[in-house]
Each structure stands twice: as structure tokens, then as C-alpha cells.
Design a protein around this nucleic acid. Structure first.
Lengths: 206, 206, 206, 206
DNA sequence: CATGAATGAGGCTTCATTCAT
DNA sequence: AATGAATGAAGCCTCATTCAT
């Protein structure tokens, strides 16, 4: 009221706006191709506030490339058979209303010119994907099998958010899940139960 | 040997040294994170020679991110069953003596902040991978199936050359081929014939 | 005065200082021989402010080579007989307190290595000089006559601001006007009325 | 004959070719806008020969901007009344077959960003024009009168070779001479004899 | 507290010129 | 003697960041 109608956002709102803008741009073109002024403009505030609130472009990036807290880690007690599907969903969940930017993996990938990003990519993959998948395997080459399925998820992500490959880009979870389930079964050695359950169509084996 | 370690005055050699250095650096950190001076320093020559020989950083990048000509396109008359394995080999063939830099896909991915790179990534994927794989499928969702297998190859590439995931990074073609073959069979619907032939289950099992 | 001689933090003042410095240098040595750092140094500010305020050296030049707005176009209702004298005055009015740099024509001439400048020179001459003079002529070869008188004005300008020819450089308007008036009469065919009025013979004669 | 058909120009021919190319380019866009490689390309030889034969771009320019020796100084014993016309002809004589480049004055003018060029312009004007014209005047303000007529010649030159003003550009000597003669008479105080003689048309005075 | 003016480092590129062949 | 590969300086411009106001 005392302010001249200009939205005098409070600290938190401004910070959040900057973070959202940063997430969006970093997920779109990566670290190097994004300037602090771009972010500030998108957020509708002055660029120096980035330094006030985050200290540096780098620290803003660190925060923006961390998965949003809304993302629960894989439910601990989930039925093992559901884990792959759950990870697939987590991978595809992006560009949806609610998520302010793209997938953190995309952001990291687009910024992989930076050593830190490659390291973070490595640890995020291993913590969020490989570790969870490995536990489902009871065969030789556990790690390799888990990494291969992780690679598929990663590749799907890249295809959709960066390469914009036509079929994968327009597919929704349900289109992909059946095939993904089969591959998971093959790689992890999980029984055909999953395939039966979650994969409606492909005339699989008979 | 006869020269006192001095740079030799050789157009072709200098051009090649620059191209090799460029390939290496672009494949390591991408376009934006690479400066022309970096490349020149690696090549041991003056930076202005880049402009003499390539015209601009951008044109050097275009040349450096093109697959080396030593890479023959998928043999036209190859047996269909061999195509997936051939593509896997092409994907893994990098950092080998002979190949001066990393895989072109890696380079493009690391430079995806640039619109042109995303487009080139898209067309290289579709021309070199999807198109060849699609022809093997005789089931619904041909394109999607081909793109999923392509995504796996892409993901393997990223895991190895960018994320440096442990198991995949140290695996060689023969370690991966069996699993990849199984996945290809599942996705492309190629009968178990292939699987039988190329490695149904890792040699460890029986 | 209150500031310790430090540069004041004043958008408008800095912009104006840059523009003035640019006008001066461009009018002295032209576009190519002037570097943005030169201009900035003269203005006492950092060179990057040129890009902040003008976008590029080229756009700064465009603004600097435009006639200052203080220059009114030839008074519409001026008596025809006064037009030549008025144009002479406009041509000589430079290096005076108030005008920050030299005459725009000088600037354009000194920068005529650039195609755009030659074109602008052409249009400024024709709009500001030839067009106005032509209307005074009621004889054959109207355009040629007007262009010849324009050429004289142009030549006077060059002599004074570039070649620094001694007599013309130190002459003031009143020294030149009588002779110029006579030439105008001859070329434009305006009767001796004007000549009589404005100064038939230099005051020295009688 | 022993050479492989490649024209192995002799020293003199190559030097001359470079000089001609330099004259042409300098007269077209001036010193700064001309690169030694441009000149060499036009001359069809290697750029380093410029340094071999002339020492530096600067020294080449000095030579190229000197009036060609084919230009005789004003005939010493010429009839005074013919001098102005003679100077007009010298001013317009350019772009003609035979003259390899443009007028030296144009070259100097286009390169006036350089201090040396302004000085040379000054001395060429005073030696070739003012000095000759002054001697014809027997009135007060001798120098000023001569400089004014010189300014007209200079302006005509600029109009034609730089500003490309329409009427003057397409006019030939005979179109301009009558008017120029009248102006010369007025400024130099030479009798109307010249005007009568050389100016056919303008209904001059009564 | 917020704005935006100011800065310095660094990036790409061009040019005149030298040096090896 | 002549070619062209190599070089270093300098130019324009952008960016992250700091400092007054």
C-alpha cells in the first residue's frame, strides 16, 4: 500500500522467482549459454539480486540443478517389481505443470562442459538409479546390468529433452512403460511377472 | 628428429593438429567451454591459424563434430541380425588409437546449449541409428522401438564418456554385447535366433 | 565539487560524455582510426559503457555523425536570398563552444572508407544543400548549378577542418560571406540584388 | 620459356602491378579500409611482395598517393587566363583509361584519418592549386580568394568521387567549365574575357 | 534493501609483418 | 628470388561481478 503499486516482492518470492527462472533456462540451454541477465530478466528483477541471494552464478546453478525436494526418493518399502517403472516415471516427469524447469539430469547434461557437473551427474545417476536397480539383481554383472538400464533411462531423457527425437518426444509414460518393462526384465533378470502386469500390448512371448 | 623440436612448417600437419586438438577438447568439454586459444595451445601453434585454416571457431567445430570419414556407414549388405551389434561397436569405438577425439555424439551432446547442435544431434541419431534399426522391425510402434534402442546406445555413450559410470566405463564391447543383444531382440522383436547366436546369456551363467 | 574528482555515477552524464568524445574523435580522424578505447579514455569512463549505452561502435557512430538537433533545418519561410548565406553559416558553424565536435560532414568524409558513410554523405548533401539551393534557380542546369555551390561549401569545409588551409582556416563567416555571396549569385543566377545587400565587395576596397 | 608457363613477371612488372592495385584500392576506400592482402590479390601476387618491394604498407601508400609523374605541373609559361581551366581539367581527369587509380586528392581525403595524409593534402593543395591561383590575383585577400577557388575544385572532386552526387558525377569537363570559369573570374577578379571565351551559354550579366 | 552504473577479464577475429623453406 | 606458414598486437564485444546511491 505504501509502495507505489510496484510489486515489492518479499525476499522469499524474489528468490523463488530467480530460482525458477534459472532452473528453466539452465534446463533449456545449460550453464554456459545462460547469462545471469537472462535469468534476471525472466524473473523480472535486477541481475544483482542473484549475487545478493545466491552469491554467484555458480552457486545459483548448484541449487538450480539439484532435484526439487518435491521429488521423493524411491519409496523405501516399494515392491521391488515396481522400482523400474517408478524410475521411468521419475525420468519422464518433466515439463509438467508444477515442475518449474526441466529434469535435473537434463540440466547437468547440458552443462557437462563443467567438471563439477560431470561429477554431479555421476553421483546422481549412481545414487538415484544404479543403487536402486542393483539391489534388484541377483545375477553376475550386477553393476553393469544396473548401469545399462540406467543408460536407457538417461538416453530416453536425452532423446526427449535435447535431441527431440519424434516418437519418444510425443510418447507418454504408458506408451513407453511396456517396452521399458520388458527390457528391465531382461537386464535385471526379474521374472516375467512385471512384464505381464504392466505391459498390456506387445504380444511378448505367448 | 632433424628439427630441434621446433614446430614444423607444414600446412597439412598443422591443420590436422588443430583439428585433432579441437576434436579432443570439444569432445571433452563442448563448444562453449573450449576457447580457440585452448585448442591452439594443445596443438602447439598460434591461435590465428585456426582462422587461417578453418575460417572461424564455428566452422572448425562443424568439421570437428562430423564423424571421421574412417567410419563407414552401416554396411549396406550386412545381415540384418548384425546391425545392432555393428551399431554398438560404432558407439563404443572411441578413445581408441586412430580416432583422434571422442565420439561425435558426445561432442554434440556437450555442446547442446547451441540450437544447431541439438538439430545436428537429432539428425545424426535419426540417420545413423533410428533409420537403420527401424527397418529391422516388423511390429507395431516401429519408430518408437527403434528410438528406444537408439536411446540405449546414446545412454551408454553418455555414461561412458560424460558421466564416467564405473562399470560401463571399464567394460569393453564383448562385455556389453550380450546384454545389448538381448535388449535389441526384445525391442526389435527379432527372434531369439540372434540371441542364440550372439550370446543368449553371459558366459558366466551355465 | 563534493565528489573527490571521482567520476560521478550518472547515466545521462556518462552517455553525453561518451557521445561528445566520440563526436570529437570521429570528426578528427574518422571511424576507422578511432578505437572505442580511445573514446572511452577521452570521456574518462570504461570502454564497455559504450556498448551499454549505444550497443556498438557502429551505432555510436551513427548517433555521433548525425547533425546535432540544435541545428534547425533551413527556416522554411526564409527569404530566398538569405538561403545561401544561411547555408554558409551552417557549414562554418563548428568548433564553436556549444558544438561538442566538428561538423557532421567532416565526420562522414573522414569515414568515407565505409560504404554507408558515402551514402549518408550523399543524402545529407542532397537533402540539406542541393534541394534547398535548387529551388532558387530558374535557369537551365538547375541541379548542376546547385551541386556546384554545394561543392564549394563542401570544399570550404574540407579546407578548414581537414586540410587546414591557412587563409580559410582563420577566416570567419564575415570574411568569407562576401565572396561566397558573389559566387552564389553567379551560379544560381540570383540577381545582383543579393550581392549588393550582403556585401558586394570586401570592406577593404572602398 | 624455362618457367612452367606461369607468368614469372619481372621485378618491375610485379612492382608496377602492386602499385596500380594499391592506387586503385586506396582511391576507392582509403588507407584503413584497404588491406595488404586485398592489394596483393588484385595484383595477382603474394602479399609479402609488398614488403619486399615497398617495405611496408605505409611506404606503399606514400608512393601510391603521390601524383603520377605523367601529370605535368602547370605549364610554367601558360597564359594566366588558362590556368583555372587547366586545374579544373586536372581535377576531373580521373577514372579515365590510362590513370591506374583515382585522383591523388581522393586518396588523401579518404585516408585523412592519418595525420600525415592531412599534411600531404595541405601541401598538395597549396603547391598545386593555391600557389598557382594566387599569382593571378591582383586584389586584396589574394590567398583567401585562391583558397576559395581551390575549395571549389576540392568540393567538385569529393562530390564526384566520394559522394557521387548525381549531376556532377555525370557531367564532363565541358559541362562544368563554363560555370567554373565564371566563378573563377569572380573570385580571382580576372576580367570577363575568360567567361566570354570559354563559357558558351549562361546568359551571364545583362 | 534495491537499483543500475561501473569494471576487468577474457573471447573471437583481423591485420601487418616476419621467418623458414 | 618467392612462397606461404607463422606470429603478436590490437580491435570489438560480452560476461560475471562489484560498488555507489
Amino acid at each position: 500500500m505504501t509502495q507505489p503499486t510496484k510489486r515489492k516482492r518479499d525476499r522469499a518470492a524474489t528468490r523463488a522467482a530467480l530460482l525458477a527462472a534459472a532452473r528453466a533456462r539452465f534446463a533449456l540451454v545449460g550453464y554456459d549459454a545462460t547469462s545471469v541477465r537472462d535469468i534476471a530478466r525472466d524473473a523480472g528483477v535486477d541481475a544483482t539480486l542473484i549475487f545478493r541471494y545466491f552469491g554467484s552464478k555458480e552457486r545459483l546453478f548448484e541449487e538450480a540443478s539439484r532435484p526439487e525436494d518435491t521429488e521423493p526418493p524411491v519409496a523405501e518399502e516399494a515392491r521391488p517389481a515396481d522400482v523400474p517403472t517408478w524410475l521411468l516415471e521419475a525420468t519422464l516427469r518433466q515439463h509438467l505443470p508444477g515442475a518449474s524447469g526441466g529434469h535435473p539430469l537434463t540440466t547437468l547434461l547440458l552443462s557437462s562442459g563443467r567438471q563439477e557437473c560431470r561429477e554431479q551427474l555421476n553421483s546422481q545417476l549412481s545414487e538415484m538409479y544404479v543403487r536402486n536397480l542393483e539391489q534388484l539383481v541377483d545375477l553376475p554383472d550386477r553393476e553393469l546390468r544396473a548401469e545399462l538400464l540406467t543408460a536407457l533411462l538417461l538416453g530416453i531423457n536425452v532423446s526427449r529433452s535435447i535431441a527431440h527425437t519424434p516418437a519418444l518426444t510425443k510418447a507418454c509414460v504408458d506408451d513407453i512403460a511396456p517396452y521399458f518393462g520388458q527390457v528391465a526384465d531382461v537386464l535385471l533378470g526379474t521374472s516375467n511377472a512385471t512384464a505381464q502386469t504392466s505391459a498390456p500390448t506387445p504380444p511378448s512371448s505367448d
